[in-house]
Write a protein that binds this DNA or RNA. Structure first.
Lengths: 190, 190
DNA sequence: GTCTATATGTAGATAGAC
DNA sequence: GTCTATCTACATATAGAC
């Protein structure tokens, strides 16, 4: 820990993270990562046995990143409704990248859903973090079907990401994020 | 027309269509298509100059396929609400494949959104057919924001596809399709 | 139109010097 | 730990006989 090697490892993961998002996992080569980091392709095998292991490290990094972001939402307010709104605000600040490349979690899962089962369940881990967090908020709001609500909200955001990216329509994305906030504000038990 | 060559061409497109859906465009090789059709790889270049041209032909085929399916929905009823319900029923009959591989249109667009712009806009064509048809139904129902409604419904279905596929959760898919039908039945002008 | 053989590039992965 | 050189496999694409 704290050695130069760990630093290189982190730089590989960071570059892979960006490339997997912008170009996709299968369309990202070791050469691409080498070009960005300046670390020669051959060195990668000192840190990772296979490309799959790089993906695994990227997913782990994203899990931590999302956990940190959700932690920030938690700290933003004691009211779960406000927390959900803070979460929606995160979407707003990523509008450009969503239109360009879709949702980092959703597009990775969609791509890997067509491949081997190991990568499939690994990529799902990021979704699970967000799902659990959302369910916690709905539970605090008093919903007894909190997990169902979490899935619905997750699906809603994924749909908006897919469509705004497919049509390259940032106006639609803006409108939909606003609709989402209105929906959160209108949430009532019944 | 009507020659053996056209038949082979159609068989290539059909096999590519299935493989692009089940494995993805980038993960489908000429060898894969050759294995299924029995047509040697080299022959493909008699019918298509590049792999991109195969994709183009696949998209054209899907456009026709969806147009035919939407035509069936049109014939099902004079009431646009019933037509939308008929459309939702199509989802029900594809539950298994959606959980396995997601939506054929959405996953292709998501994959190609990360590549070159030509394939990107080509893959969008299938979405445009469905979008226009949905907008027509909402317009007939009297909505003046018919295209916005079409985009919302498109997004809703995409979100459900992404999530049910990511979590391999067919129960969630069933519930969500039902929710969609309830939503269609409850549609009112305001 | 159909087929085999092959060109050419690049992918992931390995070997071994330093 | 870091680097270069290289292996092997397989991708798209081409050439040319039949």
């Amino acid at each position: 820990m704290g050695t130069k090697g760990d630093n290189n490892r982190a730089r590989i993961v960071e570059a892979a993270d960006q490339l997997f998002y912008k170009r996709g996992y299968n369309q990202t080569s070791f050469s691409d990562i080498a070009d960005i980091t300046g670390i020669p392709r051959g060195n990668f095998y000192y840190y990772f046995k296979t490309k799959d292991e790089i993906l695994s490290a990227v997913v782990d990094a994203r899990v931590k990143q999302y956990q940190a972001a959700l932690n920030d939402c938690d700290k933003a307010s004691d009211d779960p409704r406000e927390r959900l709104l803070a979460f929606a605000d995160m979407l707003s600040s990523n509008e450009d990248t969503i239109v360009e490349s879709g949702c980092p979690i959703g597009t990775l899962c969609s791509e890997l859903a067509k491949g081997n089962g190991t990568l499939q369940s690994k990529s799902r881990e990021v979704f699970e973090v967000v799902r659990d967090w959302l369910a916690k908020q709905f539970a605090e709001l008093g919903f007894d079907d909190a997990d169902d609500r979490a899935m619905d909200m997750l699906a809603r955001m994924q749909g908006v990401s897919v469509i705004s990216s497919a049509f390259k329509d940032s106006a639609y994305l803006k409108r939909s994020i606003n609709d989402l906030k209105v929906w959160i504000n209108g949430l009532t038990l019944n």
